[in-house]
Design a protein around this nucleic acid. Structure first.
Lengths: 208, 208
DNA sequence: GTCTATACTTCGATAGAC
DNA sequence: GTCTATCGAAGTATAGAC
């Protein structure tokens, strides 16, 4: 029953954000009276903390699975891009802002998630013997930030630039998986181009 | 007075998120009774819509100022990185999720903000005559997503990878402003390196 | 375990006095 | 414009019956 309530709380967060999780709505989800919540949880804070802990466990399992997949980076990105996961993460972050007891749990889970992802990428780079264009943790921060914001925007029907950005990131990941230069690296200017570019820039800032 | 209430609402959002904005807290902020809110606004939805509209106006002015600055891209990034602005944006996004009337306003403002930023970058690229490594809108999505997530995480004392990522992005912007190749482009492999890299990757996936 | 009953608080919103 | 008064609804939480 406790597990069922945690499930219900998570579903309510997807549907209406964390404010939608109350003793009343929670009990309704499992077909009981609202006082039942206080039998299984000392307070609503405990409900949310339980949600965070269970989400953290699921996350650990999902990351481990991604690490074992043939394309770990792509698997990780799918994990980050999961709309429900992104929304849950955002809501818990927002909730953490005004529930000190929850904040600690969320912060711990967020840092653990980032560390686990960074470790996977680091190992991947070592295996491929590639000198990375950016530190692993930087790539992880960029990829997960992007995924989270896109999910949040999609939820309110904002999609400006999404398709282009996803296409670009996918292209980068695909190139990386095949050991080829990414679109970014491909566009590196030759020394001649670079110096021409510098002259142009200088001319633009001091046109006289 | 109406303007004062909108001010107060914005401040309350910074302090405790959008749920902290109620007729009671709002009236307290301006030293009046809570019924005053319903005199100036038909409903709480209207309060939030007013907040969004005023934020959108401020945003337009700030973007115009950034466009006129000597380093528009850096100015834009400072704008995106503003912790208060990022938090306000996140809260309004979350609020938009469960208030249809608010959603429309937030979506409109978000798309306008993205378009304005993209236009600036596009013009900048044309001026410099640079063939960009990614489409302008992609760069804007990446930069603003990063800024928003970092701000949200900072608020709950999560900072894993922040310093490294900001350093990396700053380096890219600095290089761009000076018309030099970015750290990403600098690390482009020579043809010899690229082929060595491809062999390594192939060996890793089929070790036999 | 689950219920009824209850207490207290806060919310949004309206009506009407001054 | 700002107030008092009031409403119904919803929130958290506790006590105690079954």
């Amino acid at each position: 029953m406790r597990a069922e309530l945690i499930d219900a709380a998570e579903r309510l967060i997807y549907e209406g954000g964390y404010p939608a999780v109350t003793s009343r709505t929670l009990a309704e989800k499992v077909g009981l009276k609202r006082q039942i919540v206080h039998y299984y949880f000392k307070s609503m804070d405990e409900v949310f903390i339980a949600v965070v802990r269970r989400a953290a466990e699921k996350m650990r399992a999902a990351v481990a699975e991604a690490a074992a997949s043939p394309e770990p980076l792509r698997a990780l990105q799918e994990l980050n891009r999961d709309p429900q996961g992104a929304i849950l993460s955002m809501e818990l972050h927002a909730l953490a802002n005004r529930r000190p007891a929850v904040r600690e749990e969320v912060a711990k889970a967020a840092e653990e998630f980032r560390d686990l992802q960074t470790e996977i990428l680091t190992r991947l780079l070592e295996q491929q013997g590639v000198e990375p264009a950016m530190r692993p943790v930087v790539a992880i921060v960029l990829l997960s930030s992007l995924a989270q914001v896109l999910a949040l925007e999609s939820a309110i029907d904002v999609s400006r630039g999404h398709a282009e950005t996803l296409e670009f990131v996918d292209e980068c990941l695909r190139a990386f998986a095949q050991g080829q230069p990414t679109p970014l690296e491909t566009s590196a200017p030759t020394p001649a181009e670079a110096s021409r570019r510098r002259r142009k820039a200088a001319a633009a800032t001091s046109p006289d």
